[in-house]
Simulated assay, not measured.
Amino acid sequence: MTWHATVLTLFPEMFPGPLGLSLAGRARDEGLWNLDAHDIRAHGLGRHRNVDDTPFGGGAGMVMRPDVIADAIASHRPAGDPRPLVYLTPRGRLFTQADAERFAAGPGLMLLCGRYEGLDQRIIEASGAEEISVGDYVLSGGEPAALVLLDACLRLLPGVMGGAESAEEESFAGGLLEYPHYTRPAEWDGRPVPPVLLSGDHGAIRAWRRTQAEDATRLRRPDLWAAHLSRRISGRQSPQDMTGSVATASAGP
Rank of each mutant, 00 (worst) to 15 (best):
R209D: 04
A27M: 03
T89H: 00
H38P: 06
S166H: 14
L35M: 12
D67T: 04
V51Y: 02
L198E: 10
R232A: 13
Y87G: 01
I73T: 02
Q97Y: 14
I123V: 10
G175W: 00
E168H: 13
G17A: 12
A204F: 09
T217W: 00
C113Y: 03
H202N: 08
A146K: 02
A186S: 13
E130N: 06
P192S: 14
V134F: 09
R26C: 08
L88D: 03
R115L: 07
I124S: 00
G244L: 03
I123F: 01
V196W: 07
P82M: 01
P194C: 08
L94G: 11
F95N: 00
P239Q: 14
L139Y: 10
G108A: 05
S230W: 12
H4Q: 15
H4C: 10
E214G: 05
G252Y: 06
P180Y: 10
D52N: 05
G135H: 08
V148K: 04
R28V: 03
G17V: 03
G159A: 06
E187D: 12
L119C: 05
A74R: 13
L21Y: 12
P194V: 06
V196A: 08
L224Y: 04
S75A: 15
A247N: 13
H48G: 11
R28L: 06
A146H: 08
V51C: 04
R41D: 10
E214R: 10
E125L: 10
A251T: 14
P185Y: 11
A146R: 03
Q97T: 09
P78D: 14
E30I: 10
P78Q: 15
G58Q: 03
W188E: 09
L109N: 02
M14L: 15
A249W: 14
V160Q: 05
D189E: 15
R77G: 02
T96N: 08
D223F: 06
E130C: 05
R102S: 13
R184E: 05
T6E: 07
C113S: 06
A74G: 07
G108F: 02
L85R: 01
G141C: 11
L177E: 04
H4G: 04
H181R: 08
A227D: 11
T6S: 10
T243F: 10
L176K: 02
R77N: 02
W3N: 03
H76A: 06
W33P: 00
D52E: 04
E30P: 06
G128M: 01
Y137L: 09
G17P: 04
E143A: 08
G25A: 03
A204V: 09
V86H: 00
S238R: 11
D189C: 13
E30H: 14
P66W: 00
L119N: 02
F11N: 10
N50H: 15
M110H: 02
P158Y: 05
L21M: 14
A79Q: 14
C153I: 03
H38S: 09
G58K: 00
F15V: 01
